[in-house]
């Protein structure tokens, strides 16, 4: 997903001299061809995220479309005030390409795990928050970022994530995508968790329960009406995210549910990372399993909520 994302920045920049790339201190060789072919549009500015965001905002004020890339935690925790003031208050056309969000960097420990990025970014007025499911969707997301007004946070998975979105699907920032219909239960997912939800839905089908999966690549602006319509008929809703259960997709959907006042009560669960920093290393897969973010426990939870 990251390779696709950076390749897209390169391709977009080739056709649009407004497009600029800024990295902090990325891996050796990153986007070499970009640097060689378009040196005036390529910047590697050092481990100085607060400055980098301000500089990106300044460039955007002069008409540039700026793609900033570094590790998700440093791009969010480190420079939160710059995100609020320099980007959001100025409606700056800056795109934040966040590497390894969630627990992609599991073995590196919690300093490198962006597990509250969606919560804190979602709280900023004017910040669009996008979490694609796979590399093919990333391609469509990136194409949509060029003309979108204002700052955008783009959450990237670990890479090599299974492709679950149809290749011919159009993409629009602010839209949700039903990957699988189901009348009993609805999994609402964001980012790369769509695959686990689709697998959980398969397991439930074998037990006679029809579970749908709706993928929410844009957490903000959130398509509230579409989600309400999809949630209305089902008995239970489960949100699934590689993120804290506080403040992210689960909270956003809970807010919709609470305000929708559906006539019949619905089971509801937020599946995500509990309110902790990771207490294990291992891999992304072992950490997700540690927190029951895998198909079998997800299916069990859904069945219980649906009264099966």
């Amino acid at each position: 997903m990251r390779a696709t994302c950076l390749e897209m920045v390169y391709q977009l920049a080739k056709n649009d001299e407004r497009i600029v790339f800024i990295g902090s201190d990325l891996g050796v060789g990153t986007l070499n061809k970009f640097k060689n072919e378009m040196p005036d549009q390529f910047f590697m500015e050092g481990i100085s995220e607060a400055h980098v965001i301000g500089m990106a905002a300044g460039m955007a004020m002069e008409g540039r479309i700026v793609y900033v890339n570094t590790i998700a935690t440093f791009l969010t925790r480190r420079c939160y005030e710059q995100l609020a003031v320099d980007l959001c208050m100025h409606r700056a056309n800056v795109r934040l390409l966040a590497n390894g969000a969630g627990v992609a960097y599991a073995p590196l420990g919690p300093t490198h795990q962006a597990t509250e990025d969606l919560a804190i970014l979602r709280a900023l007025p004017g910040m669009a928050v996008v979490a694609p499911a796979d590399a093919t969707e990333m391609e469509r997301v990136m194409a949509a970022t060029v003309e979108y007004p204002g700052p955008i946070y783009i959450r990237q998975g670990r890479g090599g994530d299974p492709v679950v979105t149809p290749p011919d699907q159009e993409f629009r920032i602010g839209q949700v995508y039903l990957l699988r219909p189901g009348k009993d239960v609805l999994f609402v997912t964001t980012g790369t968790m769509a695959k686990a939800a689709l697998d959980a839905a398969e397991l439930l089908a074998a037990r006679g329960l029809h579970a749908g999966v709706v993928h929410v690549p844009t957490l903000k602006p959130l398509d509230v009406e579409a989600l309400k319509a999809l949630m209305a008929p089902v008995r239970a809703v489960l949100t699934v995210e590689e993120h804290s259960v506080i403040g992210g997709l689960g909270s956003a959907v809970a807010e919709i549910l609470a305000e929708a006042a559906f006539l019949s009560p619905k089971g509801f669960a937020r599946l995500g990372i509990p309110d902790v920093f990771a207490d294990q290393y291992g891999s992304q897969a072992t950490l997700l399993a540690h927190w029951d973010l895998t198909p079998e426990p997800m299916a069990r939870r859904a069945a219980t909520l649906a009264g099966l």
Binding site: H51, M61, D86
Partner: peptide, 30 residues
């Protein structure tokens, strides 16, 4: 001061330590 609200104000400032980076971005673009 707020950008977009006050004619002639080039940036919303008040939180300190932001203006120089904004200026650098603009200077690079110009």
């Amino acid at each position: 001061p707020e950008f977009g609200k006050v004619p002639g104000v080039e940036a919303s400032t008040g939180a300190l330590g932001h203006g120089l980076s904004l200026g650098i971005g603009r200077a690079l673009a110009l």
